[in-house]
Amino acid sequence: VDNKFNKEQQNAFYEILHLPNLNEEQRNAFIQSLKDDPSQSANLLAEAKKLNDAQA
């Protein structure tokens, strides 16, 4: 993981990586967004979790 991520951002990265119901395309999009703007990690994680739950 890129060293410019802080602890919260790293946690978001790993959580998104391991959400079971996202397809690869969705997962990659969230990860790319996280890399583009790490400050949005909490929002991105919340969105990813919502999508993950919706696809459960």
Rank of each mutant, 00 (worst) to 15 (best):
K35E: 08
N3M: 02
P20L: 08
E8Y: 03
Q32S: 05
E25R: 08
L17C: 15
E15G: 05
E24K: 11
E47Q: 13
E15V: 13
P20M: 13
F13M: 15
Q9G: 02
L34R: 00
K35T: 05
Q26K: 08
L44Y: 05
P20N: 10
F13A: 08
Q40I: 14
N23A: 10
K49D: 04
N43C: 04
K50F: 14
N43R: 09
K49A: 07
A42M: 14
A46T: 14
P38D: 05
S39Q: 06
A48S: 09
N43F: 10
Q40K: 12
D53C: 07
V1G: 10
N21F: 10
S41E: 01
R27A: 07
N23Q: 12
H18D: 10
N3P: 03
Q32H: 14
I31N: 03
A42D: 11
A12Y: 03
P38I: 06
N11W: 10
K7D: 15
L22Y: 00
D37I: 07
E47W: 11
D2N: 09
K4E: 11
N21R: 05
A29I: 07
N28Y: 09
E24P: 05
Q55P: 08
A54Y: 15
D2P: 05
A56M: 14
R27Q: 09
D2L: 04
K7Y: 12
K4A: 13
H18I: 13
V1I: 11
K4R: 08
A12W: 06
R27Y: 02
L51P: 01
Q32G: 12
K4H: 14
Q32I: 12
L17D: 09
S39R: 06
N6H: 02
L44T: 12
D37L: 12
L34D: 00
E24G: 07
S41A: 10
K50T: 13
L44R: 08
N52D: 07
Q32F: 07
D36P: 01
F30Q: 01
N11K: 11
D53P: 02
A46H: 13
N3D: 15
N11P: 02
A56G: 15
I31V: 08
K49V: 10
Q10A: 10
N3I: 05
F30A: 07
Y14N: 15
L19S: 02
F30L: 06
K35A: 06
K7S: 14
I31F: 04
A42L: 15
K49F: 07
N11E: 15
E47C: 11
F5V: 05
L51Q: 04
L45V: 08
N6E: 15
L34T: 03
A29P: 02
L45G: 02
N28G: 10
N28S: 13
A48P: 00
E24T: 03
F13T: 08
S33F: 15
E47P: 00
Q55E: 14
Q40H: 11
N21C: 15
Q55L: 15
K4G: 15
L22E: 00
D53E: 13
R27P: 00
D2V: 03
D36G: 06
A46R: 05
F30G: 00
Y14T: 13
L34P: 00
N11A: 08
I16S: 01
N6V: 02
S39E: 15
L45C: 11
N52A: 05
N11M: 13
F30D: 00
N21E: 04
E15L: 06
K49I: 08
Q40M: 11
L19R: 00
K50Q: 13
Q10W: 12
A12H: 11
A12V: 14
E15A: 07
A29H: 09
K50L: 13
I16K: 00
P38N: 02
A12P: 02
Q40D: 12
L44D: 01
I31P: 00
S39H: 15
L19C: 10
K7G: 08
F5E: 09
K35R: 14
Q9D: 05
L51Y: 08
N3A: 03
Y14W: 09
F13P: 01
S41R: 03
V1W: 01
Q40N: 05
E25N: 15
A46V: 14
S41P: 03
S39L: 07
E24I: 06
Q26P: 00
L17I: 05
D53M: 12
Y14G: 03
L45Y: 10
H18V: 08
F5I: 04
K7W: 06
N11Y: 14
I16L: 14
F5C: 03
F13W: 12
D36I: 13
L44G: 01
V1A: 06
L19V: 01
K49G: 05
N28H: 12
N23T: 14
Q9S: 02
V1F: 02
K49M: 06
Q10D: 10
S41I: 14
H18K: 07
E15D: 06
R27C: 04
A42T: 15
N28I: 11
N21D: 09
E47S: 04
V1E: 15
E47I: 14
E25M: 12
D37W: 09
K4Q: 09
F5A: 03
F30Y: 07
E15T: 12
K49T: 04
R27W: 01
K4C: 13
N43S: 09
Q55A: 12
H18C: 11
N23I: 15
Q10T: 03
A54F: 15
L19K: 01
N52W: 01
A29L: 03
E15I: 12
L34Q: 03
F5H: 03
N3H: 08
E25F: 03
Q10K: 06
F5Q: 01
D37H: 09
Q10I: 12
Q26E: 09
H18T: 13
Q32T: 11
D36Y: 10
E47D: 15
N3K: 02
L22D: 00
L51E: 13
S33L: 04
Q40W: 09
Q26W: 04
A48D: 00
A54H: 12
Q32Y: 08
A56P: 08
E47H: 07
L22Q: 00
L34I: 13
E8S: 01
R27H: 08
I31R: 02
N43Q: 08
N52K: 02
